[in-house]
């Protein structure tokens, strides 16, 4: 199989899930629910959700693939928006640069939060799930204490909220993807990520520095949550601080895209796979709306989809094993019968 056909095959396999899911739901909603799924306004919504959930799933993927579960992603989104947004609000800069400045500020604050939770992780050396609970509480409380708990209100500042226009959001997404693909595939950090992910003991023994690698992963996750925050504020115009760990609900729409991304990593690149996964989830949530499912039914369907996918992904090596087992069995039977003659 020549190199070019292999690349073609990989591209087809990477994009296949998105096309299949989109067509499947297009069919279902037109048959059972109201029409309007996936066209015009709803296509813009699917685009927005893909970018918004895509950023969250990318952020979660940089830690979860190496076994580090992070409860603080939601609180980082909120805190980076509140701090970055309010600072950007005060600085008046001519028209298009205001919005860009806000993105830069929010992402920088997000990376700072990521650095802090990364340092907490390597200094305390506790299971990441446990540390991230404490970190999430601290970030939430800071977000609540600042700007006397009003969060960020930009609904009067349309000039800053230009990022939901499809072309702007795709520019943002493309920019982020290029940087991430470069980081994951063409830098030492990327190679270390992959070796630490599956062979932590051997990689560390050989001398790969796990501490810096995990802190960089946390910084990237924080920055990505900043981008997700930009999409959130551009869509809703306002964000209120949260308390009592309720920010961990932001994570719910990160699981499905991340696991689809992991499954597609072999064929192209994990980051692209995650975005394809985010597109599939966006189709699912929009389709459910057109099928008239209530919000709680949405959570149930989304949750069930994640669990089914997880079961498939964690057990499909068994199918291959089973097939190999059956072949070996025939071969062995063949041999014993030959030995008997």
């Amino acid at each position: 199989m020549s190199k070019s056909t292999r690349i073609l095959k990989n591209i087809v396999i990477t994009l296949a899930p998105a096309v299949i899911v989109y067509l499947f739901f297009l069919l279902i909603t037109n048959l059972f629910g109201e029409p309007g799924f996936g066209v015009g306004d709803n296509l813009r919504v699917i685009g927005y959700n893909m970018v918004y959930s895509g950023f969250i799933a990318l952020a979660v993927s940089y830690n979860l693939t190496s076994g580090r579960f992070d409860f603080s992603v939601g609180s980082v989104l909120i805190l980076s928006l509140i701090v970055g947004g309010n600072i950007a609000k005060e600085i008046d800069v001519p028209e298009p640069f205001g919005a860009v400045l806000m993105v830069v500020l929010v992402v920088l604050v997000g990376m700072l939060c990521g650095l802090i939770s990364g340092l907490f992780y390597i200094l305390l050396r506790l299971p990441p799930m446990v540390t991230s609970l404490g970190v999430a509480m601290i970030f939430e409380a800071i977000g609540f204490a600042l700007f006397d708990s009003e969060g960020l209100r930009l609904y009067t500042r349309q000039d800053l909220l230009i990022w939901t226009k499809p072309q702007n959001s795709f520019i943002l997404l493309a920019l982020v993807l290029i940087v991430l693909i470069y980081l994951l595939n063409f830098t030492k950090f990327g190679y270390n990520c992959r070796s630490l992910q599956t062979g932590q003991k051997n990689a560390v023994e050989v001398g790969v520095n796990e501490k810096t690698n995990s802190v960089v992963c946390y910084i990237i996750a924080g920055g990505l949550m900043g981008f997700a925050g930009i999409m959130y504020i551009s869509q809703n115009g306002i964000i209120a601080p949260q308390t009592g760990l309720s920010s961990s609900s932001f994570m719910m729409n990160a699981f499905l895209p991340m696991f689809i991304g992991n499954a597609l990593a072999k064929y192209s690149d994990r980051n692209i796979g995650v975005i394809v996964g985010a597109f599939c989830q966006a189709c699912l949530s929009s389709a459910l709306v057109y099928l008239g499912a209530g919000p709680s039914m949405q959570t149930v369907m989304n949750g069930v989809a994640v669990m089914l996918f997880l079961i498939y992904v964690s057990n499909n090596y068994k199918f291959a094993l089973h097939r190999a087992w059956r072949e070996k069995k025939e071969k062995a039977l063949g041999m014993t019968s030959a030995a008997k003659q």
């Binding site: 979860l64 579960f69 799930m129 609900s249 719910m252 699981f255 209530g294 709680s296 039914m297 949405q298 959570t299 149930v300 949750g303 069930v304 994640v306 669990m307 997880l310 079961i311 964690s314 057990n315 068994k318």
Partner: peptide, 23 residues
Amino acid sequence: YVEVPLFIVTIVLGFVLSALVLV
């Protein structure tokens, strides 16, 4: 019987059960 990362599945199950109660 099912080999799967339990901590993710149970977190999602928690959300699903709470939503089922609402339903």
